[in-house]
């Protein structure tokens, strides 16, 4: 039997190697690619990314990846969005003027207020708690404890139009924001599970189970 193939979309934004290593740790057969055909043919897709929303969408459009990614989300095959990869699933971002996103999930990407009444520095760089806002059963967060710590690096956060898809909330700079979502086959998180030690690796292990149907 041929093993299931996971594609990590390498569209030139940030260090994808840590995602690749987390996949290897979870036993997921993954490759880095920017080729739309490979995305279309994949059994599962991981959309990572670090950096600016506008530049990321520019790269995605230039590589002709927007439609394949949207189609993939609609296909029922598992997709994991991480950090900027989570934000890109939204309708738009207010980073340096308005930028259109993939519009898979209705929502806006906003900047943390600076200064803020908590004296919190922006970007948020560090560990923070993810608080359950609905059951994690059947999502890739299954098995984690409510309030678990994950590693975050970001200046912008996701504000969903409707919080139906939200799995967890996190508080920073006086804002309580959605830190992960799950809707059908699409899961995405603002934090970096590949940098969140053994608890983050559980997310990759759970994702692998979805990919292989274990």
């Amino acid at each position: 039997m041929q093993s299931k193939k996971t594609v990590i979309v390498d569209y030139g934004m940030g260090n994808m190697f840590s995602v690749l290593r987390a996949c290897a740790n979870a036993g997921l057969d993954a490759v880095l690619t920017a080729d739309r055909k490979e995305v279309e043919a994949a059994d599962a897709v991981i959309l990572p990314g670090v950096g600016a929303f506008g530049a990321a969408m520019e790269n995605i459009n230039r590589l002709d990846l927007a439609k394949p990614l949207k189609d993939f989300c609609a296909s029922g095959r598992p997709l994991l969005g991480v950090c900027l990869g989570f934000q890109l699933l939204m309708t738009e971002s207010e980073e340096f003027g308005m930028n259109r996103g993939l519009d898979v999930i209705k929502g806006v990407v906003r900047k943390f207020p600076v200064p803020n009444n908590e004296g919190a520095k922006v970007p948020q760089i560090g560990w923070n708690a993810i608080k359950q806002c609905r059951s994690w059963e059947g999502t890739v967060l299954e098995g984690l404890v409510d309030g678990e710590y994950m590693y975050f690096v970001h200046s912008f956060y996701v504000a969903l139009d409707s919080t139906e898809a939200a799995c967890s909330n996190t508080s920073y700079a006086g804002i309580e924001y959605t830190s992960s979502i799950s809707r059908g086959n699409v899961f995405a998180c603002q934090f970096h599970p590949e940098k969140s030690a053994w608890n983050g690796l559980k997310i990759y292990t759970n994702f692998k189970k979805r990919v292989t149907g274990e």
Partner: peptide, 8 residues
């Protein structure tokens, strides 16, 4: 270290 530990 990067292969076997998963923190920044």
């Amino acid at each position: 270290t990067a292969r076997e530990t998963f923190i920044p």
